[in-house]
């Protein structure tokens, strides 16, 4: 029996090959995997309790006993960094999931049905886009109350319009394709056409945007925690660690260096991955 090559499988293989040959994307993926690994394994790693205070070891510089030093109440900075990675990555992923789960269906509906539905959704999206991401997130977090969950909701809701606009634009270019017309001709309903024929074809750019938005969301979560609107003490988070550290800059600079470096590295990792994915998925590159 002769196997007929599925074009979508071929395209996936080509994308995968291209992604593997992109060195910066690989570096980005390694950084992200490292941080995700540390965050997931935090409970079983042989590190100090991130909340355990030691008044005999306050603001100790990095040493063999405490690799990244200790903070203003003697807590181990390395341990807080690893546990803080959990909050940052969780916030990044969950808020983007919220944005995708709300934004993509609305974008699909607007692009597919067009007319009044599109006009209404597009006007609302434009209005939401007129409110800068961070200001919107701060305002929402302020009105919802300060907590990590509310920060994730606030960031997710603020990112919704990005996904509505992106999905709508992609649907507009896909919905006139022959295979969509074909699906319509055989009498398929709107929902099967949207979910089985349109969504898989508009998914690649959404995936790229989602990867890049995780980077933005991690910075936004750190910013909200820095302002006191995200993760609440004593639970560790990179943003709140920086907020405390700024008061001890001359006495304990390491308290500020590590959390910022963590945010920078993980965000850079997601940005490199997103850029690599975009290049690999761009049909003009093939």
């Amino acid at each position: 029996m002769t196997a007929i090559a599925d074009p979508s499988v071929k395209a996936t293989n080509r994308t995968w090959r291209k992604l593997r040959s992109n060195k910066s994307a690989l570096v980005g993926a390694c950084v992200v995997i490292l941080f995700v690994g540390l965050a997931v394994l935090a409970p079983v790693l042989p590190i100090a309790d991130p909340r355990a205070t030691d008044w005999g070891a306050i603001r100790q510089a990095p040493s063999a006993a405490a690799w990244m030093g200790t903070d203003e109440i003697g807590r181990d900075v390395l341990s807080r960094m690893i546990w803080g990675a959990r909050a940052s990555l969780l916030a990044g992923v969950v808020s983007v999931l919220i944005a995708v789960l709300i934004g993509v269906p609305f974008g699909l509906i607007a692009g597919y049905f067009g007319g009044w539905t599109d006009s209404i959704i597009s006007r609302v999206t434009e209005a939401l886009l007129a409110m800068p991401f961070l200001i919107m997130a701060i305002a929402l977090a302020a009105f919802l109350g300060p907590s990590l969950t509310n920060a994730m909701i606030a960031i997710g809701l603020s990112a919704v319009p990005i996904f509505i606009r992106l999905t709508r634009g992609q649907v507009l270019s896909v919905k006139t394709e022959d295979y969509v017309e074909g699906a319509r001709a055989i009498g398929l309903g709107h929902i099967p056409i949207m979910t089985r024929y349109i969504l898989p074809n508009v998914f690649p750019p959404i995936l790229v945007q989602a990867t890049l938005t995780i980077a933005t969301a991690i910075i936004a979560e750190a910013a909200l925690s820095f302002l006191g609107l995200g993760q609440q003490p004593p639970a560790p988070s990179w943003g709140s660690m920086l907020n405390t550290a700024k008061n001890f800059l001359s006495q304990a600079p390491w308290m500020a260096i590590w959390p910022g470096a963590g945010i920078f590295l993980v965000v850079m990792g997601f940005n490199l991955m997103g850029d690599g994915l975009r290049d690999a998925l761009d049909p003009r590159e093939h």
Binding site: A222, A256, I263, N271
Partner: peptide, 22 residues
């Protein structure tokens, strides 16, 4: 450019204060 897009500006600010001011 990529570093500029990835660095949280509040951290950059703190680091500059540490270096240039402190």
């Amino acid at each position: 450019a990529l570093s500029g897009l990835s660095v949280p500006n509040f951290w950059l600010g703190i680091m500059l204060i540490l270096l240039v001011s402190v």
